[in-house]
Design a protein around this nucleic acid. Structure first.
Length: 616
RNA sequence: GGGCGCGUGGCGCAAUGGCAGCGCAGUUGACUUUUAAUCAAUUGGUUGCAGGUUCGAGUCCUGCCGCGCUCACCA
């Protein structure tokens, strides 16, 4: 339950006074003739001064009450404009609302009047009519701006506590314009990607989010259950297998932009759910995908920021094609100065890396491919790939859906082994961050089946790397899948690049956060209700209506003061309960999964640890 | 999950273990061209939660909760 603080009580009081005076606090409609930006524009193209009459709406962001004349800035999505509020123009009654500050900063208002310029030079609405559109009961955080002579804006006071900003994104957006701009650019990014892919002749499709079998990537899935069908379902970790089935169905090229879910840690570049873009195009290989990738990134950057050269975290990045392309083998040669093909097994490679002092944090039981990709590339090379770089030709055991590399070893044993153990796959990196992944897709059903089996042999059942064998996917492939190139990329990371944000959370409107501890008031209410409901549910066999009646009677009698998340803790471990202190009067029953305890008939206060001891 | 850091009025921040303070916002008053308006007065706090050490804890110790950074994990 909401417990208004001092500021909120003041606003509630104002709201009551306004309402008592017959004012509508939340009228259903208003007449808007211009957006704020249009109103300013109209003033500029105004031939005769004072001839432009506008009705604008917005939220009050600044209010300067000064005797018989006042100034307010209102803001709508298009920008801000000043309201010039004068007793003579506005009239006694309306002006009184302003002068008495019954209309506050943060309220939504409607203002009508002619456009004018104040003596200080600011274009303003000479307000003749001011109407409240929505009364704000909780004030937003205070942020003041100063516009300097050179046009730059500096802020005084900020709303920057990250936790509150993420949990109360609406307040963050309402106060921080730069945050709003990020999400405008995000929308433009996704639109640009769609436009680009549509123009490439690809068909946008939608595939299941709930899948009976997950696959297409190496990640732990979320599991859920369909009650009626008695079926476990996975939230997808990628779209890959469903999209490629569509190429079997006869589409030349398909793409999907949507949400993936991975049950893994969060970081500045990982969120449990994130937006993925995947496309598959028949009759091209990974070289073709590279070309599309480069053009797509350059195009999107141009659409969003007006240039394919961008500035990210102080670095100048040029997304203009062509990008640097090199094989992972060449990358290791270039950055770490050795040829890993000289160490063709995980044992020999590990021994060599140890001798070079490069084995820190490396698991000696890892597969050969993982040592190269996860360790050498991931830990030693990735962070140095600042300008867009395509790294291609990956070891096979980490690439179960990519086609073997082509080429002629010409009798050279080392080269023969290289060709045999590598696939036509590439990842690309910008500013040290992996941006996407692509292959010449495997379309030989026999090879694909062998890969599934091989993965099962190489990785434990519960390893992230393991990919469940998908019989239906193999069946689809047996019907004939055209040769094709596929692509997958994290859209959030792309938005990070284009908006110069260093955390994925800043490009997600609602990033995933832990459940916060509920306030004591919430707990009090929740606990009282739980206690009452439980008492009735388990002690009395009554019709629902009677239960409700008794709950209503019972509630006021229960006086509970607790200082923790009681509801959750009761289902938690004993250790979690140690610090709880519970005080209650009246009859109270506490439920756990197995037991049902009658606690006390009279006032009791004890630590939960003691309570637990007394009943076990 | 490990390490480091942070948590103090609505927001931003102070406080060698010794009276919890400042700015903004708010409230009251003055002001008919302000724009971080100004001037005068003024309200507002169980310092994330629970224990402990101490004559005395925002500060030190322990546990817990949350957030950030980082490592691990991770296309």
């Amino acid at each position: 339950m909401w417990q208004p603080n001092k500021l909120e009580k003041e606003r509630l009081e104002k709201a009551n006074r306004l309402e008592a005076g017959g004012l509508l606090l939340y009228p259903g409609r208003c007449q808007r003739s211009h957006t704020v930006a249009e109103a300013v524009e109209a003033f500029h193209s105004d031939k005769a001064p004072g001839s432009t009459y506008v009705s604008v709406v917005g939220r009050i962001r600044r209010l300067n009450t000064k005797g018989k004349v006042s100034f307010a800035h209102i803001e709508d999505e298009s920008g801000r404009v000043q309201l010039f509020l004068r007793l003579n123009t506005l009239g006694e009654e309306s002006y009184e609302l302003v002068r008495r500050k019954l209309i506050d900063v943060d309220d939504f208002v409607h203002a009508s009047g002619t456009m004018m310029r104040t003596r200080a030079g600011e274009i303003s609405v000479d307000t003749a009519q001011l109407t409240l559109l929505s009364k704000t009961l909780s004030p937003l955080p205070v942020v003041k701006e100063q516009r300097r002579a050179d046009g730059s804006v500096s802020e005084y006071g900020e709303f920057k506590d990250t936790e509150t900003r993420y949990r109360q994104r609406y307040a963050d957006l309402a106060v921080n314009k730069s945050v709003r701009e990020v999400f405008v650019k995000r929308a433009r990014t996704i639109k640009a990607l769609r436009d680009f892919l549509d123009n490439e002749g690809m068909l946008e499709v939608e595939t299941p989010i709930l899948q009976p079998l997950y696959g297409g990537a190496a990640a732990r899935p979320f599991v859920t259950h369909h009650n009626q069908l008695h079926q476990d379902l996975y939230l997808r970790i990628s779209f890959e297998l469903y999209l490629k089935r569509l190429l079997v169905g006869g589409y030349d090229a398909v793409y999907e932009i949507g949400r993936d879910f991975r049950n893994e840690g969060v970081s500045y570049k990982h969120n449990t759910e994130f937006t993925m873009l995947e496309f598959y195009k028949a009759y091209i290989d990974y070289e073709g995908v590279m070309d599309i990738t480069e053009r797509m990134f350059a195009y999107t950057a141009e659409q969003v920021n007006g240039s394919s050269a961008i500035r990210y975290q102080g670095a100048e990045l040029n997304l203009t094609p062509p990008w640097k392309r090199l094989s992972i083998r060449e990358a290791v040669q270039e950055y770490l100065d050795f040829d890993y093909m000289d160490f063709p097994s995980s044992e020999t490679l590990y021994a060599y890396l140890q001798s070079r002092g490069l084995a820190d944090g490396l698991d000696r039981d890892d597969t050969w491919g993982r040592m190269i990709v996860e360790h050498l590339l991931g830990n030693h090379i990735e962070e140095r790939l600042i300008q867009p770089t395509i790294i291609k030709d990956y070891p096979r055991d980490v690439s179960p859906f990519a086609k073997r590399i082509r080429g002629d070893a010409a009798g050279d044993e080392k080269e023969r082994r290289y060709l045999e153990s590598h696939t036509e796959r590439f990842e690309f990196f910008i500013h040290g961050m992996e941006m996407g992944n692509a292959f010449t897709e495997l379309n030989d059903p026999r090879d694909q089946q062998a890969r599934f089996v091989e993965m099962k042999r190489l990785y434990d059942e519960d390893s992230d790397e393991t990919t469940p064998l998908d019989e239906d996917y193999l069946r689809a492939m047996r019907f004939g899948m055209p040769p094709n190139g596929g692509f997958g990329s994290g859209v959030d990371r792309m938005v990070m690049l284009l908006t110069d944000q260093d955390s994925i959370r800043d490009v997600l409107l609602y990033p995933h956060l832990r459940e916060p501890a509920p306030s004591e008031n919430d707990l009090r209410g929740q606990f009282m209700l739980d206690a009452a409901v439980r008492q009735l549910e388990y002690q009395l066999d009554l019709p629902l209506a009677e239960k409700k009646r008794r709950i209503a009677l019972y509630l006021p009698k229960v006086e509970v003061g607790i200082e923790f998340r009681m509801a959750n803790a009761l289902e938690g471990s004993l250790a979690q309960l140690q610090n709880l202190r519970v005080a209650f009067a009246g009859q109270l029953y506490v439920m756990t999964d197995e037991n049902f305890y009658h606690v006390q008939d009279e006032l009791t206060e004890m630590r939960i640890a003691d309570f637990w001891r007394s009943i076990t």
